[in-house]
């Protein structure tokens, strides 16, 4: 049996901004659809933790970072277009 891979995400958002809210919703929908029960999501509000944004080099919000499995990848935007997101997260193989 294949080892269960847990996906770790960190999503940087800018408070209640529209783009950020959309990204949160899209990420949650994606995880439900493809990674049910094997994902962890950390949401960082850059307005609350600005120094963290500075240290992590977050310029654009929303930014999604996939921390695990490696390699680490970054995606910016609302995640509205699924296809490039799945490609970047290498989830297509899982689906297939």
């Amino acid at each position: 049996m294949k080892r269960r891979i847990v996906y770790k995400f960190r999503l940087y958002v800018a408070g209640e901004a529209q783009n950020s809210a959309q990204a949160v919703a899209n990420l949650k929908a994606l995880c439900l659809g493809y990674l049910a029960d094997r994902h962890e999501i950390e949401i960082v509000d850059v307005y609350r933790e600005p120094t963290r944004a500075l240290e992590d080099g977050i310029m654009m919000t929303p930014t999604l970072i996939k921390l695990a499995p490696t390699p680490v990848s970054r995606i910016i935007g609302t995640l509205a277009q699924m296809q490039p997101v799945l490609l970047a997260l290498r989830l297509e193989a899982v689906v297939a």
Partner: peptide
């Protein structure tokens, strides 16, 4: 990788700090 719209909120928050 870009997917959808984004804004400069992160940068401004960082710069503010």
């Amino acid at each position: 990788i870009q997917s959808g719209n984004f804004d400069l909120g992160g940068m401004l928050a960082a710069l503010e700090a």
